Simulated assay, not measured.
Amino acid sequence: MRKVVITGGSGLLGPSVVQEFLDHEYEVINAESIKPDQPLCRTVITDLTDLGQVYGVLEGADAVVHLAAIPVAYSHPNEVTFQNNVMATYNILEAAEHLGIRKAAITSSESSYGIVFSKNGLEPQYVPVDEDHPQLPEDSYGLSKIVNEQTAEAVHRRSGMQIVSLRLGNVISPVKYENFPSFIHDASKRAPILWSYIDSRDAASAYRLAVEKDGLGTAALNITADDTSMDIPSKELMTSQFPEVTDIRGPIDQYQTLVSNEKAKKLLGWKPVHFWRDHVSLQ
């Protein structure tokens, strides 16, 4: 049985990722600062900013999946968000390398493009936004994600460890679909995230594939659903909220995502299968 350590397994996304690996016959350890409401596997209370504790919890693992972080900008003082997110990721990859772990998947974010938490009205340079779009954050959260991706590249260069950074869209656990009727007809809502979303179960399968596939080196991949979270065609969304963005690089005549997931599909053989329209009545 393969052993994977998942950090942050008690959070919003964590239970889906833990369950995904359990369903595929992994031994799973949840490295967390808090115990989950409903335990799915053994939890080891761990301070990920303490390198010694990270060595301890990763010992014997075949792979590590790093979810734990302060998940948004401005919920904590800027320096706290930056230090926590950067040092936890550094410690995970540093310890994994020296313990001989050859596969890691870490959590990046669409926030790294800078639009999500911009206080200056940053707009996308083109849509759908792909992984080549400039990363222009002004907040410490988005900046921490860029640093973490660079840390992954540095560790790969010196060790050859495969490290995949998943740039997640807005994670939606199944229970959160009940909130959709409150915003799906208002283009002004959720515009900073380009109306993106990803079901937690689809995100979970991407993490599993990221540590099962070989030959990826380092890669940063957008993980979003194929559609937007709105009952408004994508072209109308852009015309309403970002009329000056005229560089359109893919079809947006229906409800297509405005954050491209094509690279993840190609490299991982992944595809999302859970969509909000299957859970929400449009009546």
Rank of each mutant, 00 (worst) to 15 (best):
S173R: 11
S173H: 06
P174F: 09
V175D: 15
V175W: 12
V175Y: 08
V175N: 15
K176V: 00
K176D: 02
K176Y: 09
K176Q: 15
K176R: 07
K176F: 13
K176S: 12
Y177Q: 08
Y177I: 10
Y177L: 00
Y177K: 03
Y177D: 09
Y177C: 10
E178G: 03
N179Y: 12
N179D: 12
N179G: 12
N179I: 06
F180A: 02
F180H: 07
F180T: 12
F180C: 06
F180N: 01
F180I: 04
F180K: 11
P181K: 07
P181F: 07
P181T: 12
S182A: 04
S182I: 01
S182G: 07
S182H: 15
F183S: 07
F183P: 01
F183A: 00
F183N: 05
F183Y: 14
F183T: 02
F183Q: 14
I184P: 02
I184D: 09
I184M: 14
H185T: 15
H185R: 14
H185W: 11
H185Y: 15
D186K: 15
D186V: 02
D186Y: 10
D186P: 01
A187Y: 11
S188R: 10
S188Q: 10
S188E: 12
K189I: 06
R190A: 01
R190V: 06
R190H: 11
R190C: 09
A191T: 14
A191N: 03
A191Q: 07
A191M: 11
A191K: 09
A191D: 02
P192K: 04
P192Y: 08
P192N: 10
P192S: 04
I193G: 06
I193F: 05
I193N: 09
I193A: 06
I193Q: 13
L194N: 01
L194D: 01
L194W: 04
L194T: 05
L194V: 12
L194Y: 02
W195P: 10
W195V: 03
W195Q: 04
W195C: 04
W195T: 08
S196G: 15
S196K: 00
S196L: 05
Y197D: 01
Y197P: 03
I198N: 02
I198C: 09
I198R: 02
I198G: 04
D199E: 11
S200F: 01
S200K: 00
S200A: 06
R201V: 00
R201W: 08
R201H: 00
D202Q: 08
D202W: 08
D202V: 08
D202C: 03
D202I: 00
A203F: 03
A204D: 07
A204M: 11
A204R: 01
A204V: 09
S205C: 15
S205Y: 07
S205Q: 05
S205T: 13
S205I: 14
A206F: 00
A206V: 08
A206K: 02
Y207C: 05
Y207N: 13
Y207P: 06
R208P: 14
R208Q: 12
R208N: 10
R208E: 11
R208M: 10
L209A: 05
L209S: 00
L209I: 09
L209C: 00
L209F: 05
L209D: 12
L209V: 13
L209K: 07
A210M: 00
A210P: 03
